[in-house]
Design a binder for these strands. Structure first.
Lengths: 199, 199, 199, 199
DNA sequence: TAATAAGCGAGACGGTACGTCATGTCTTACA
DNA sequence: TGTAAGACATGACGTACCGTCTCGCTTATTA
């Protein structure tokens, strides 16, 4: 995360130039799209953005932090659409991810994020907080409601149910043994409801 | 994979020295255990193994290839134990993975392998062939038998069922949002049987 | 030549460290004296000088360039001593070279410089500019004066005369078929005056 | 020199294959013509000639030795043409060298030979024996005859005279400060005769 | 005719060095 | 204090050659 997020900021000395900031973000996104995360170096990024390395290090201390920032800056909260049945709501929610990942940038970003997190515990923690947690929370909320309304009927642990749903998604995304597409989400939700649905 | 796997060589030139080979493997395993995959460089590996860089490049063209070889050389086929019920066989099979991953070396190896594969399609393909595929095949076989014997009763696609089971495993392993332990496997199998089991 | 010779830099960024510079020069001179030019590698030089390879490459792009710099930094202009006859002045001038080359360092340096220039046209050009040209100019000046004052009497082209004198010097130096010593210079000047002198 | 030149040769074991020999020579000449001596490596040469490195090392222990062999194999003795005046004979002799060096191959070969000899005393000795010595001997012979016949009149040491003539040639060849061409040889001989000739 | 000896290609091997790239830190002048 | 520029030590990259070696095989001479 950008280090200025410390909220205080009494603003001493020369203020940060937001054009510098933007140039870095833009260049990073371009490199990510064109060559992937492995090709993203602070050195090359500085050159492409026309910015000094110092200015980048001042904002992010690792490639992972920068990557997470890029990722987060693009995510927006899904609109709550009430009045749906559980399977509809679930499919709609999961579909958002699939649709997003049809854009190569997103695919590269999220896969790199997880890859990077394997050897960077700080980043891993952030990923759990910013990416994994909120999604589980959203679906957990849907599930609890569905249990209440009798749409779900299983004695399995709800956390395990979340693991099975999201796990299947990440599994296809990261291991690529089969397509990660709308059809898959549809099948996944159908299969899940077939097993866990009431009736 | 080591490049000598090109089927049958007619044995020309000076043969490979298996001591050299062994020294590399040993040193690589040590570095992996002690410092992790990020600290594994061909340069340092050569120094530690007392071997020239050329001798390493001759065998593996990337760190990922080497890593997969290290991984594969340690895997052994699980003994077939007949006469079990499906949930017992499934739990036993999945438990093998959990037990293995209690050793830090295994955890580092497999997580690095997947991380590396995110930006190396050739490696990704090998991982699917050597790691993902056989495991799915093994459990698929168990499932088919279970369906026949009436232990499983669901109309969900079998591939989706595999995605949910293995997905949950990988998800906990790679995202670490919750413990990846024996308890988890037990809960997972219980939950799965609760939903998909007959009766 | 060191790359900073680009006229006047407006001094941007961190300035070059002259201690780094000095350490390189010193180490290079030592290696040259002790082991000769063939043993001079950028790798070894960096190690000996306690300096990074980058810092060397930043200054010189080839061993030849560095060598010329080492050579030039040691050369000083010969003092003009007026009131001599032409043969005395000539002998004194050429003798300076012989005396210098009695030191092994000089011999190694200049011979390596010419050797290197055989396959490096950029270096060859520099050698002509910095080494060959000034020496010819100095002796050409003496000759013109000698012609004016009647000390030389020959209709041979002055450039050819220079070729014969300097050529004889380089020939003995590079081919080593006979000693390159004070006696030789003395004989050379005597022979030259015997043929080209007036009277 | 090829190591088999030891004259004895009771010929045991499998005899050398002259096609192998020829392939090496041919390839070496090609590389020399196309890319120069600096680009000539035993490794690359073996590949180009379709020959093993061993086969090359068996014949020549260094690039210099090989180069001298290439050079010598192309040289033929100049035909003695009697009945000429000294300046005519001298010019004809020196002109042979100039003409030969108009071919790039020759220029590269001889310049590389001298360059290499600067750091390889064994090669230097061979060059003196095979290249420098015979040429000096030939012209020395001409000079002695010329002195006897009154065509030369100078008290300068004959060795110094040879140094001036050949020195001027090598000087232009190796330092390239001025053209090394027929015009130069003509001027050189003219200048020399102007100074040293009788009358 | 068998033994012996060398030639030969292929290619492994431990080395050394290459020239480049990226890291993260630093130092400077200027804003 | 931010910034661009760039120096710096470090360390790794992947490649090229070096000169030596070890193989299987071939081609000669000698016993």
């Amino acid at each position: 995360m950008a280090r200025t997020d410390k909220t205080e900021a009494p603003a001493r000395g020369r203020p940060r130039n937001h054009r510098t900031h933007g140039a870095i973000i833009t260049a990073a996104n371009e490199i990510l799209s064109e060559q992937g995360f492995a090709a993203l170096s602070f050195e090359g990024l500085a050159a492409r953005a026309g910015v000094s390395k110092t200015s980048i290090y001042r904002r992010w201390s690792s490639k992972g932090e920068l990557l997470l920032d890029l990722y987060m800056s693009e995510v927006s909260e899904p609109p709550e659409v009430p009045g749906r049945s559980f399977p509809e709501a679930l499919e709609e929610y999961l579909m958002l991810t699939v649709v997003r990942l049809e854009t190569p940038w997103w695919s590269v970003a999220i896969r790199s994020l997880v890859a990077e997190a394997q050897s960077d515990e700080a980043l891993a923690k952030l990923v759990r907080q910013k990416v994994v947690g909120p999604r589980r929370a959203a679906v957990r909320k849907l599930m609890i409601q569905a249990f209440k309304q009798g749409e779900l009927a299983t004695s399995a642990d709800i956390e395990v149910l979340l693991d099975m749903l999201f796990g299947a998604m990440w599994y296809r995304l990261l291991l690529s043994h089969a397509p990660f597409d709308r059809r898959f989400v549809s099948d996944l939700v159908d299969g899940f409801m077939d097993m866990a649905g009431a009736g």
